[in-house]
Nucleic acid binder design. Structure first.
Lengths: 346, 346
DNA sequence: CTGTTAGCGCATTCAC
DNA sequence: GTGAATGCGCTAACAG
């Protein structure tokens, strides 16, 4: 049986109110009593019940964080950033994994509300879920990350997916490719949709035709990436380069390339969204866009804290730029291209 | 302001006790009242406060999970398994990241105790931390995963690291290698120590000499793996094969190999602990041991539930076998066997 | 079967 | 400055 505030009060010869005051750093307590209380707390090894405290003050110091896929390195990087920032502000993080499942997401959202968390940060599984509305109705501070929520207005921190995708595909085009495949996450999520849009933008800007056969979308996971890439490779006229929209898809695609007996990057070029910042350690020939995971997480917490202070400020939407890394080794040549050499520069 | 149980009671024309009974599925409530209550709950969109409930019953239905590195794919895989199993048993998971930091670990452990979680699953950062003792003192069900805790007896689910490491290194020896480097996690953790032991075992069993220069240990992370591997490659007489003890170390090592201008696996062979089950998609030439992440997580939860039911049962320690994958492409030959040194100048 | 009541551990009035 | 008293929302005795 854990020690209660009453035990401490008795041990220190004061009232529970005084103990409470000391522990929450309130002023107006004489130094003598403060010392006595602290001593008692120490010898009794007292740890206040956060449950009781939360019930009393109707608000905990916990930030609920719901990510759509804990196995996606992009999100673990963001989680790290969020934890760091929350910790610096005396908040703890209650992390849950919705696993791209709207049902689980709703369940966890309800759980957070029932736990009276101080605020919620969420990477939404779908664009709209009735549960999001409850957040607003109950006036729980919330911010969406990475993906846009469409059915209710809440603060969000996003990445410029369109711009980054366009840069990536443009790079491939400038290397001389004209048949460029796309292996993307489902357009049902704003990220998938935006990256597809960037791909299309780049093709249009260079007057290249869009071939629906070259565009594949699905769940952003290894297995699906593998399947989609295999389909592309089995096409009568497969692409000479591929744009992948996510690190897990990239891994699946690489596997498909290998198991087809093809070699990367000699037989097929690739440019990818790399949500882990180490993909290129293993495949230096990849052209990747590194995502601003740390800023994303930090800003999410900061936005949340701001909203906790001023519940009525206007909704804010931050869009971060993603930085494309062109590596030496990514200046490959078009394999089997009409003739020799489409290499742009040295 | 969220609706309270009293509101529901009034709306349904019953007492709060009846509402409570209906909601917790207790028997002895007439069908008529049950319907009325359910109706009220529905129209009022009532969600019971878990905070108040936890305070009352002195126990939540949350399992606290503290992992030592959320960015390590091994742990995210285990987290998935734990969540699945917990969810099937009507528990939610409160996940925290100690980030290999004993201070943070202690903080989170205290937090879980203060939150009155139903139980704690932890991958310990260090072998001993006074905070572990508190778990036992307060009789909070707990189980350690992946690493052994030495200063207090608690249930644990471990992997047969010695056996797996021995198999991996033996494989390299059987391929003809005799100068085998080791890039391992710190022996301060039981995993690091055991994998080192397996390495030594294999060498001894084949009568090979142990060269301290070929053994490097450090934090199990990319940066450290890179540094250690570089040191090995800069040795006057570098190894012809390397055994790495962790997926992140492996990535770092691969990077060092690449940036030295060497090629894998032509210039140097490698066998690795691969905590992600997709490392070999990217590097099929690796020989890896796949870790039983799902079983590990599932068993951890099951052990926890058992201890919740019978607090006084004897401590249990489960050791899982890890399975080694020998792939076609890993049957390489010793590069330039007893011939020239393949070191390149950097 | 159902309602009334008494806390769970703490923070916060309001008196002193 | 300090203590006594009240209630946060809920469940579990205990009556009826």
């Amino acid at each position: 049986m854990p020690t209660k505030i009453e035990d401490v009060a008795r041990r220190a010869g004061v009232s529970t109110a005084t103990v409470s005051r000391v522990l929450s750093g309130k002023p107006y307590v004489s130094d003598e009593l403060r010392q006595r209380v602290l001593g008692a707390v120490n010898t009794l090894n007292y740890r206040p019940s956060r449950v009781a405290r939360s019930l009393r003050v109707q608000r905990s110091s916990i930030i609920g964080l719901i990510v759509s896929d804990i196995q996606n390195p992009f999100f673990t990087a963001v989680v790290r950033a969020i934890e760091d920032t929350a910790y610096q502000n005396k908040f703890s993080v209650f992390l849950c994994n919705s696993d791209e499942d709207v049902g689980k997401e709703t369940m966890y959202l309800d759980l957070m509300l029932a736990e009276h968390v101080a605020g919620v940060i969420i990477s939404p599984t779908a664009g709209m879920n009735d549960a999001y509305r409850r957040l607003v109705e109950e006036r729980v501070p919330a911010v969406a990350i990475d993906r846009r929520i469409t059915n209710v207005a809440i603060d969000s921190v996003l990445v410029d997916n369109v711009g980054a995708a366009r840069q990536l595909v443009t790079h491939l085009i400038e290397q001389g490719h004209s048949r460029i495949g796309a292996v993307l996450g489902t357009p049902a999520s704003s990220t998938g949709e935006e990256r597809l849009r960037g791909y299309l933008d780049a093709l249009h800007a260079h007057g290249l035709p869009v071939e629906q056969d070259l565009i594949r979308t699905g769940m952003p996971r290894i297995l699906e990436g593998h399947a989609m890439m295999r389909e592309l490779l089995q096409l009568p006229k497969p692409p000479t380069a591929v744009f992948t929209g996510n690190a897990l898809l990239t891994i699946g695609a690489l596997r498909a390339i290998h198991s087809s007996g093809l070699r990367f990057p000699d037989d097929i070029a690739m440019a990818a969204f790399d949500e882990m910042d180490w993909m290129f350690f293993v495949k230096p020939a990849l052209t990747v866009v590194a995502q601003p995971t740390y800023d994303l997480g930090r800003l999410a917490v900061e936005l949340l804290l701001k909203r906790m202070d001023e519940p009525d400020r206007p909704i804010e939407e931050v869009v971060l730029a993603a930085h494309v890394h062109y590596r030496e080794s990514s200046k490959w040549r078009v394999p089997n291209a009409n003739g020799a050499n489409h290499q742009k520069e040295g």
